[in-house]
Design a protein around this nucleic acid. Structure first.
Lengths: 102, 102
DNA sequence: ACAATAGGCAAGCCTTCACTTGCCTATCAA
DNA sequence: TTGATAGGCAAGTGAAGGCTTGCCTATTGT
């Protein structure tokens, strides 16, 4: 799957990892909710659009799913892509070809 | 630990992930050995220096350890940093503070 | 000694990426 | 309807990252 690349790239940014932390603590937050959390708890002087772009990146990686309700858009965490992403190097068993994984 | 940032950044590049694949298949390879593998098996038209820089990045992340023997420098895989790097979001248990993890 | 092999250092190029700024749309409350 | 709230789009900027090129050091074999 080509998704692995998006996934690792999404995890490469520290701000996005903090967003995942916040969504882990409380899933289903809106953009503004995440904004104020990053500002309050983490002292991140970052614009709303920047966070919106981070959320888009996380969504493209499959780590965040969204649902619209009226003017609110809730962001839910999906940890499924994370589960086996690293076992690629943890199993010293070369049973199946590892091509097309990047 | 500040290492988490280096670790995720090291995993962000597809070429570096392929290098990890090759070291998983056969640990203790030299730079030239890795070069020819990437060229042969993966059709990567990439210079020796580029791969050397990738290996330096992987070493900074703790994923690769090196040992010098004469004019050879062997690269060994260390998967220890990978083991728990993702559990940060897999455990819905907020028992301990997650600051300073990025 | 000399050449070949294995690797390192540093400057430069070019692309990607994070972030900002400015403006626009949609929903809801008064 | 008007204003406030929640969010989106797109262009621009500046810094980081991947890669190359050129040259240099160290070790080994003949």
């Amino acid at each position: 799957m080509v998704v692995a690349d998006d996934l690792f790239k999404a995890l490469a940014d520290p701000t996005r990892r903090i967003i995942l932390d916040e969504l882990t603590e409380k899933s289903g937050q809106t953009l503004f909710e995440i904004c104020s959390r990053l500002s309050m708890k983490h002292q991140l002087g970052i614009s709303r659009q920047a966070i919106s772009q981070h959320l888009a990146t996380l969504e493209a990686a499959g780590l965040v799913e969204t649902r619209r309700e009226g003017r609110y858009k809730f962001h839910d965490l999906n940890t499924a892509p994370l589960r086996h992403i690293v076992q690629r190097w943890l199993t010293p068993d070369p049973s199946e070809p590892e091509e097309s994984t990047s």
